[in-house]
């Protein structure tokens, strides 16, 4: 998916969080969004996801204004931690995926996906019994349920152990190779083994955007 952000300014009440941000991503690009706490990383993501209401013609997704964008099933999103998810109530991996399916994603495709993210054996388990890393994979699988063209990951490896982090980036890199545009918010770019193509660095709401050749970081 092509993502085009032009002169985006956004704030809550009287506080400006994002100041005049512009960048363009093509299909298959892999963007790292870096910055300190409060630099506006999550706010930017919420603007792209249509959760924050912005003025028209600031963000285009495949040339459609995000304000009018309806086809959110094309976007996969893995939130930072799982705070928004009420995961104390029993629900299995399969049940989560079933209710997240909004396209004609077949049962075979689902099993293939579970295998790819390494949780095929866990499909009938209650998510309460999973480790942080396994839970992370469940959410990645969920975000891929509807064959997204853009995948947005908000600090996905916080609290995940080193071994699982490596496996995670391997999966993400493979998905990117298949042509999915990826935006990954990260605290520490050097820790991640992702094959970024671009870096967007946010500081006090202002951004610097640069292209890097694969394997630079």
């Amino acid at each position: 998916m092509r993502v085009s952000v032009s002169n985006l300014t956004f704030g809550y009440d009287y506080r400006t969080v994002l100041k005049d941000i512009s960048f363009v991503l093509k299909s298959g690009d892999f963007l790292a969004v870096i910055g300190n706490n409060g630099s506006g990383k999550s706010t930017l993501i919420k603007c792209i996801l249509g959760i924050n209401k912005i003025t028209p013609n600031r963000i285009l997704l495949d040339d459609v204004d995000v304000v009018d964008y309806k086809n959110y099933k094309n976007i996969g999103y893995v939130p930072q931690k799982f705070d928004d998810f009420n995961y104390e109530f029993p629900i299995t991996v399969n049940e989560i995926l079933q209710v997240s399916k909004y396209t004609d994603f077949t049962e075979d495709q689902k099993l293939e996906l579970l295998d790819k993210v390494g949780i095929l054996e866990l499909q009938n388990e209650n998510i309460n019994n999973l480790s942080g890393g396994q839970l992370q994979r469940v959410f990645i699988a969920r975000s891929l349920m509807n064959n997204p063209k853009l995948l947005i990951l908000d600090e996905p490896t916080v609290g995940v152990d080193r071994e699982n982090v490596e496996g995670f980036y391997k999966t993400i890199n493979e998905l990117n190779k298949e042509g999915i545009t990826i935006m990954l918010i990260t605290h520490n770019i050097h820790e991640s083994k992702a094959n970024f193509t671009h870096i967007l660095s946010l500081h006090n709401g202002e951004a610097s955007f640069r292209e890097i050749s694969r394997g630079d970081e």
Binding site: L49, G50, I51, K70, Y72, K73, I75, Y77, P79, D84, F85, N86, Y87, F89, I91, E95, I96, Q98, V99, S100, K101, Y102, R142
Partner: peptide
């Protein structure tokens, strides 16, 4: 509306995302 109810209950943000 089973699917929608389950998603909204478990994860409102994700439900919002699905439109």
């Amino acid at each position: 509306f089973y699917k929608e109810m389950v998603i909204i209950s478990f994860d409102e943000t994700y439900a919002k995302l699905l439109g």
